[in-house]
Amino acid sequence: MNEPYVTLNIVNKVGYIEFFHPNRNSMPSDVLSQLEQTIIEAGTNDAVKVIVLKSGGDRTFCAGASFNELIAIEDEVKGKQFFLGFANVINAMRNCSKVIIGRVQGKAVGGGVGLAAATDYCLATQYASIKLSELSLGIGPFVIEPAVSRKIGVSNMAQMTLNAETFYSAEWAKNKELFAEVFNTTEELDLAVKTLAENLSSYNPEALKQMKTVFWQGTEHWSTLLSERAEISGKLVLSKFTKKTLKRFR
């Protein structure tokens, strides 16, 4: 697997959406756009009753934003446009009428934590440690903050943000309610994801749809909010501090 992709595979009424990038499943704009459109597609496909969001490979779930693309941003318009990619994916997940189960097999960094937080129910392995590294890069987790804070609370979000170079364990994430369950192996994770998804797919779809609306009550303003947050990040990524830091990390 050397080429990025986003796929939708429907098995037993479950839509498995898988994304992949050879650089630790980082997320450039084109992959984010494909992921957004695939979530929308699965959400309107009558053959799909439940969605599973997963990534390819057996290591990192998602390393967040593509550093190469961040470095190449030259103006505020392009900066906002890039960060809108994450905003659009989160809003697609939020607006999707189907329940979305997260399958996190490995580390999640930055935007990857945001993706996990935007699922309706998230399962992980013991290797799924999480980190919000944005502040150490000169930006901040502005776009994903609402989704993360909604799951783990503002104080825990602040702790992760300010300790920007610290990985927090999967058990920590479970205790803070980002993950519902943590498994020892990927095999155990996959069995649990399959069992849960197929059970849910047999339930009344209208009841699931209405419960999804309840889960996300109070987030109706997020389309505007996340766009405003993308603008903040789009400006910060142009700073000399951020440019210099990104080049060093790359």
Rank of each mutant, 00 (worst) to 15 (best):
I90S: 10
N88Y: 11
E181M: 12
I144S: 15
I71M: 11
P22D: 09
M93C: 05
I101F: 04
A116I: 05
F183E: 04
C62P: 06
N204K: 09
I144R: 10
E198M: 09
L208A: 05
V99M: 14
K151T: 02
F241V: 10
H21G: 00
Y203H: 13
D120I: 02
E145N: 12
V31R: 03
V50S: 04
D58Q: 13
T119M: 03
V89G: 01
K151H: 00
T38Y: 06
I100H: 08
R248L: 10
E220I: 04
L32C: 08
L226P: 03
T242C: 15
F179I: 11
A117C: 09
F183L: 07
V104Q: 07
A180D: 13
G114S: 08
P141L: 09
P146F: 01
V14N: 01
E74N: 14
F142D: 08
N9A: 11
K194L: 06
E171Q: 14
I101W: 00
A108G: 11
T213Q: 15
N184A: 15
G79S: 05
Y16E: 12
T125N: 03
D30I: 04
H21V: 09
E181L: 13
K13P: 06
A65G: 10
E220T: 02
N12S: 13
V193H: 03
I90P: 02
A192V: 06
S97Q: 15
K212W: 03
I17S: 01
S133G: 09
N91E: 15
I71W: 05
N175A: 14
A197S: 14
T44M: 13
G218Y: 01
I10P: 03
M211E: 01
S55R: 06
T44Y: 00
G57C: 11
V48A: 00
K176F: 11
E220L: 04
N91A: 04
K209I: 01
A92N: 01
M27Y: 04
I71G: 10
A47D: 14
G111A: 05
